[in-house]
Design a protein around this nucleic acid. Sequence first.
DNA 1: GTATAAATGCAATAGAGTTGCAAATAGATG
DNA 2: CATCTATTTGCAACTCTATTGCATTTATAC
Lengths: 139, 139
Amino acid sequence: MIYGDLEAILRAHAMRITACRIDVLDSFLGTGHALSFKDLEGKLTQYDRVTLYRTLNSFIDKGIIHKIFSDSGFISFGICYDTCSPHHHHHNHVHFKCDACGNIECLPSYHVPVPEISGYKITEANLLVNGLCSKCISN
Amino acid sequence: MIYGDLEAILRAHAMRITACRIDVLDSFLGTGHALSFKDLEGKLTQYDRVTLYRTLNSFIDKGIIHKIFSDSGFISFGICYDTCSPHHHHHNHVHFKCDACGNIECLPSYHVPVPEISGYKITEANLLVNGLCSKCISN
DNA sequence: GTATAAATGCAATAGAGTTGCAAATAGATG
DNA sequence: CATCTATTTGCAACTCTATTGCATTTATAC
């Protein structure tokens, strides 16, 4: 992605522009799927693990990325599509995890069907779907 | 629960009857919601942490309980309703997490709506719903 | 250029979960 | 009931993920 665009995203969220943040943001925008901490750690070896953790946490706080909890117990991070305000994420898209390649994708065009549960008040719903992604299904 | 019934469940899964397994099983059957490791550790202090972990893992292997991944990142465990064979769990019920009391419930009468995703093969779907449970909503 | 608040790197720490191994025990056998 | 064996348990040590404290560095406002 063009460097100026990355800078603009950080500025739009009132964040200082640092090399680490630019690189992490670029990683998210340059891939079609969610990233785990390990993905980033393996790719951006020039930064300390702690800095990467803090970068991810500040991106979550600012509403730039969101956590994805998969059945592996590992947490992945995906770019936010709709407007997530600081400290408040609004996601209603489906998450897909491919059991072959292990990649997790956000499917922003697939909304989570929220069931009515009598006697309960529902505020949020997360749907994780497992299977084979389009790439792995054709191999 | 009656001790003989607990014994019968273990025997039906070809497991040796031990005090820890009886107590863990009784904990699951005596509560209306899922249990975290911490719940069990706090309740069954007479057993070693490692023994509790191994008990939970063997119950999962045998299809007696299943893991529930919530948005907190903590794993909870729920009794299996439908027939889960060893090493293969079949769950299609909704999981609910109350944001007030923190309890996680299995809702066996609410099935997970599985979306069709073009170009993808879907094998499983997990739905976690957040909100207020019936107890907390009336307080 | 300088001041200052924020970000970084390193070391230490916290917490969840697992593994190795010796001791204890469930359950099968005679 | 005694004995044998495979399973289970408890303890210690360890692995892995993630966080915190603190000194140093850096981005940005002036």
